[in-house]
Lab assay of single mutants.
Amino acid sequence: MDVFMKGLSKAKEGVVAAAEKTKQGVAEAAGKTKEGVLYVGSKTKEGVVHGVATVAEKTKEQVTNVGGAVVTGVTAVAQKTVEGAGSIAAATGFVKKDQLGKNEEGAPQEGILEDMPVDPDNEAYEMPSEEGYQDYEPEA
């Protein structure tokens, strides 16, 4: 019985440690998101679009440190934060509304985080759909 109880105690310690790591990862992701939003706020009209992409990228980098179902929630929060940063930029006159959601080359930025393969159960990952990809044929 002692062996059984000791095993359960060790398992509990492992769960607590994993929860603490997840909590730490979420806190880091939130900190990076805040950094990115402050970065966007300090940019001029020309830099705002690039700044919004930076927020998304920093958040995406930190999301990889967070495991399990938390990833889905962090990704949703990050996307809403990026959308909010863009709205703030438009409201303050840093950028025109028609410039939001495009990178410096004018290509749409939507789907940055949505296409990231995420499995809350950590069982399997699927690649994003290939609808947006084109076949590449090298020139002879």
Rank of each mutant, 00 (worst) to 15 (best):
M1E: 00
D2M: 04
V3G: 01
V3L: 04
V3H: 03
F4N: 00
F4E: 00
K6A: 11
K6I: 14
G7E: 04
L8S: 00
L8G: 00
L8D: 00
S9G: 10
K10I: 14
K10L: 13
A11I: 15
K12S: 04
E13V: 03
E13L: 02
G14P: 01
G14A: 15
V15Y: 14
V16F: 14
V16D: 01
V16Q: 05
A17D: 02
A18K: 02
A19F: 15
K21W: 08
K21H: 03
T22F: 07
T22E: 00
K23I: 02
Q24Y: 15
A27M: 15
A27G: 04
A27H: 07
E28L: 07
A29P: 00
A29L: 07
A29Y: 12
A29D: 00
A30G: 01
A30C: 07
G31A: 09
K32E: 00
K32D: 00
K32H: 08
T33Y: 02
K34A: 10
E35Q: 04
G36F: 05
G36C: 11
V37K: 01
V37Y: 13
L38D: 01
Y39C: 04
V40C: 04
V40H: 02
V40F: 13
V40R: 01
G41E: 01
G41M: 11
S42F: 13
S42P: 01
T44Y: 14
T44N: 01
K45I: 13
E46L: 02
G47N: 11
G47R: 13
V48I: 12
V49L: 14
G51K: 05
G51Y: 10
V52Q: 01
A53D: 02
V55I: 15
A56F: 07
E57Y: 04
E57V: 06
K58P: 01
K58T: 06
K58M: 15
K58E: 01
T59D: 00
T59C: 11
K60L: 12
K60E: 01
E61G: 06
Q62F: 08
Q62K: 08
V63E: 01
V63F: 11
T64V: 10
T64A: 08
N65W: 13
N65V: 09
V66H: 03
V66N: 02
G68R: 06
G68F: 02
A69R: 10
A69Q: 10
A69F: 13
A69Y: 13
V70A: 03
V70Y: 04
V70P: 01
T72L: 13
T72K: 07
G73C: 14
V74W: 13
T75H: 14
T75V: 13
T75S: 07
A76Q: 09
V77K: 02
A78N: 01
Q79D: 03
K80H: 06
T81W: 05
G84L: 11
G84A: 15
G84N: 11
G84F: 15
G86P: 06
I88S: 02
I88F: 02
I88K: 03
A89L: 12
A89E: 03
A89F: 13
A89Q: 04
A90V: 13
A90P: 03
A91Q: 07
A91N: 08
G93P: 05
F94T: 05
F94S: 05
V95W: 14
V95H: 14
V95D: 05
K96N: 14
K97H: 09
K97W: 15
K97R: 12
K97Y: 02
Q99L: 11
Q99W: 13
L100H: 03
L100W: 02
N103R: 08
N103E: 08
N103F: 09
E104T: 09
G106I: 11
A107N: 09
P108G: 03
P108W: 09
Q109P: 09
Q109D: 09
E110V: 06
E110I: 05
I112H: 10
I112M: 07
I112G: 09
I112L: 05
E114I: 12
P117S: 04
P117D: 07
P117E: 02
V118K: 11
V118Y: 10
V118Q: 02
V118P: 13
D119K: 02
D119S: 03
D119E: 12
D119Q: 12
P120V: 05
P120K: 07
P120C: 06
P120M: 08
D121C: 07
N122P: 07
N122W: 07
N122K: 15
E123K: 09
E123F: 13
E123N: 10
A124V: 14
Y125E: 06
E126R: 09
M127H: 06
M127G: 03
P128C: 04
P128K: 04
S129A: 07
S129I: 06
Y133I: 02
Y133R: 02
Q134V: 03
Q134P: 11
Q134N: 08
Q134D: 07
D135Y: 08
D135Q: 09
Y136C: 06
Y136T: 08
E137K: 04
E137H: 06
P138Q: 05
E139G: 08
E139Q: 04
